[in-house]
Design a protein around this nucleic acid. Structure first.
Lengths: 219, 219
DNA sequence: CCCCGCTGTCACCAATCGGTGAGTAGCGGG
DNA sequence: CCCGCTACTCACCGATTGGTGACAGCGGGG
């Protein structure tokens, strides 16, 4: 019934339009990027598309093509933004870990990573995207995320050498895999392999088990 | 990969059409289910829809509504089919594990599960689906998969009791999480947390690390 | 001043989506 | 033989998708 002519009831007397969009390319670009990230966080990658991002950003999709060269470029911009992830998550007391053993260190890192991922919905979405698709898009994003994680681990680890006789790279990869899947599975379904992952008590159990595993290898 | 173009030249003189579709509801139902599973395996859950399944099954989508009540019912049928997963994967020598310690058992189970998942693309797709979406559809499927896994573990474990003093349920969940994420990540991107997961040598490294972790907790 | 360029909007495109109603085709029982 | 039941197909619906070309409005430089 609505003809688009009648839809124009933005009669100037009534509404104090809160945000009057001004002509500012930089601001629009930032708005688009923010909309893309929030959309990815809230809706997941299933419904992540040009139309949805433009709708959320409150602008025309044409601008996404113009400013980012399409969805691919926008995704790449999200990936580039992940570089800031590291800066935001290096605690100041990292120096306090100098005198720890490798086992102490890895235990702390495991728990820190667990918490960091639990509190980072964007990373979770990207992680889930990674294991679900293998397009060029997601490969680039995956690379950025992987690089950020590696950098973070490197900064946190410092110069502590792993013990001899164990393939620390492989063991750590397995531990990280466990952490990532626990977080993903918990966020998605509230459980993993029969272990409930809802309450903070549940997560404490998981963390304890994780600690035990790390301690088991690294002593 | 069949284009419908070649299907259009069913000129009666030329081709001996290998499959002449007969009127057989049961066969059609089976064809639809098989098409759904193969579609999920080959394309993933992104493009899993009524149209795609019908196209692959070579029948009208209306039949999917009639026989399965829509996509939801079809997904549920896939879930029901997972019950056969357990039957196919119980080795005959399960009895040979009776005299093992719990650590021996869990190490073997971990490696068996790793291989089983590596060779089961359907399970991988379902697993990735689980951590990516939280709709009713995927929740049902997830439940079926989880139940199948639990049953498998139960059958394999036998009546061996876990050691005291360690939350075996939590530890095993973490180990399973690690296995699942390793397999997902490896299948999707060929690596996980910097650890390459392409060649069988790569997977041996991962398996060794996994063994070490399990051994560390269960002795 | 006018004009050009940049920012933003709108209308439109073909394709595909899930979903439905109506009609066709073939087999089996009278 | 024919009739009816059932398996099956087709045509169409509105909505949404990614993508493009044309146009409007403001602003700064000649």
């Amino acid at each position: 019934m609505l003809s688009e002519a009648e839809n124009l009831d933005n009669s100037p007397g009534v509404g104090a339009e809160p945000e009057r969009r001004v002509r500012d390319r930089g601001a629009t670009e930032r708005a688009i990027l923010a909309a893309a990230k929030s959309l990815l966080v809230q809706e997941g990658f299933q419904n992540f598309g040009i139309n949805a991002v433009a709708r959320r950003a409150g602008c025309d999709k044409q601008l996404i093509y113009r400013y980012y060269g399409g969805l691919d470029g926008l995704v790449e911009a999200i990936g580039a933004d992940l570089g800031t992830w590291v800066r935001d998550r290096i605690p100041e007391d990292a120096g306090g870990m100098f005198m720890l053993t490798y086992g102490d260190l890895m235990e702390r890192l495991a728990l820190l990573l667990l918490d960091a991922l639990r509190n980072d919905p964007l990373m979770r979405r990207i992680l889930a995207w990674e294991v679900s698709e293998n397009t060029e898009q997601v490969r680039r994003l995956s690379e950025a995320r992987s690089k950020a994680l590696a950098l973070w681990l490197d900064r946190m680890r410092g110069s502590l050498a792993p013990p001899k006789g164990v393939d620390a790279a492989a063991v750590n990869a397995v531990v990280i895999a466990a952490i990532q899947h626990l977080v993903l599975s918990g966020a998605a379904g509230g459980q993993c392999a029969g272990l409930s992952l809802k309450t903070s008590k549940d997560w404490e159990k998981a963390a304890t088990a994780l600690k035990r595993l790390v301690r088991g290898v690294y002593g």
